[in-house]
Nucleic acid binder design. Sequence first.
DNA 1: GTCTATACATAGATAGAC
DNA 2: GTCTATCTATGTATAGAC
Lengths: 238, 238
Amino acid sequence: MKSRKVEISEMSFKEFSNMVEVSMENICKDIFHENRDSIKIKKEKVAVKNLTLIFNSTLKLSNRIGFQSMSLRDLSAASGLSMGALYSYFKSKDELAKIIQEQGRRITSDILDQEIGKGVNLADRMHRAVRAHLYLSEVMQEWFYFSFMEAKNLTREEQKRAIESELATENIFFDIIVEGEKAGLFKKHNPFLSASIIKGMLQDWYLKRWKYKNRGITVEGYADFVIEFIEAFILIKK
Amino acid sequence: MKSRKVEISEMSFKEFSNMVEVSMENICKDIFHENRDSIKIKKEKVAVKNLTLIFNSTLKLSNRIGFQSMSLRDLSAASGLSMGALYSYFKSKDELAKIIQEQGRRITSDILDQEIGKGVNLADRMHRAVRAHLYLSEVMQEWFYFSFMEAKNLTREEQKRAIESELATENIFFDIIVEGEKAGLFKKHNPFLSASIIKGMLQDWYLKRWKYKNRGITVEGYADFVIEFIEAFILIKK
DNA sequence: GTCTATACATAGATAGAC
DNA sequence: GTCTATCTATGTATAGAC
């Protein structure tokens, strides 16, 4: 029980938060360079600044009223950019959604891989996976909420990617569980169901953050609770 | 462990399904009578038939593309009723959403109360609450999905009601857990978090049914798993 | 690079014939 | 009770001035 606390201190929420911040800006730059054909702006500095502004405004509005309900006039008002200016940064509303999805997926994938790779054993890997996912969805709450709620508004191709990304995350847990069972550390259950349930618990954090916030639950507190809950089920007691 | 199986047999999914079917038609009739001012149709038989048709078409379309993206022309095509005819059954698109929400909430509340009331002790009540909620969300999967995903598209008043209903369901679990702790049957944890997590597990069933279906998981199988998972955490081992 | 003005499509909603 | 035809508002997207 104590050992978990030690592992947390290796990656506090604050440190984690900074790490994501850096990753986010880099990925924004990558996105700018990759989409130079559909982005009419030439200067990197102004483009990245406004892209960030547009992404954030879109996420804020979509979280409140939904991407479909958000008109580009709304987005124009929220971002302070005119309709014409907006269309210098993307060539359609659909493409805007696509770029935002892409950006979030990359950050998620980068950060999770990086963080889980540090795990020294299976229990540690499980803790890190849970904690990293929760911390990440805390920092990028709007994106995670957006990504879940707006999946239906994407093109079929983008939907496929979203599902793949979703299942990839779940597989991280699946793999840890299966390895743990083989090693005789975890009880034998249906590992697919266990992984699903764990994923669901993590999702609850960003889908219902208002509820947890109202009750004064912090992301660290929630992480501790989830880990305890999972371990009661999978760990073999000695 | 065996005792749970006995309790299930008191309410098989099939029986449950029939119970809901009846409740659904009755509530559809109630809704018709209560909204006689906004519904221009006089004959109960034709009104209830078409209302049911409209509700089902709306749910189907909304589940696929979202309520906001569904135009009334789409709904007209799917239901086989003309635009004009549709407006004889509701006076705005917003009102249509509202009526559907109302109908689902009533069924949910009726069925859950009825089913949980049968519980003979706290563990039994917990099992029944889990199972009833899962079975209900299986029968009415489209409604549950709609209700969760379209909350943002409702008026502020309706949003408040949706949240209240959500929290009421969660409170069922909260109360059972608190009573169980007092009675010395359940371990002491944070009962708010326990109730939240349980609610999230139930929600996962209807939010990701495609995933469970693809993997061949039945609702009964999922219910058994969830109950086992919960009990590993809350039950005091003897 | 950003703005204003505008084109064009599609949405919700209603009127009046049948 | 249901249909077709139509009104009006709003949405996405673009052209061209600055």
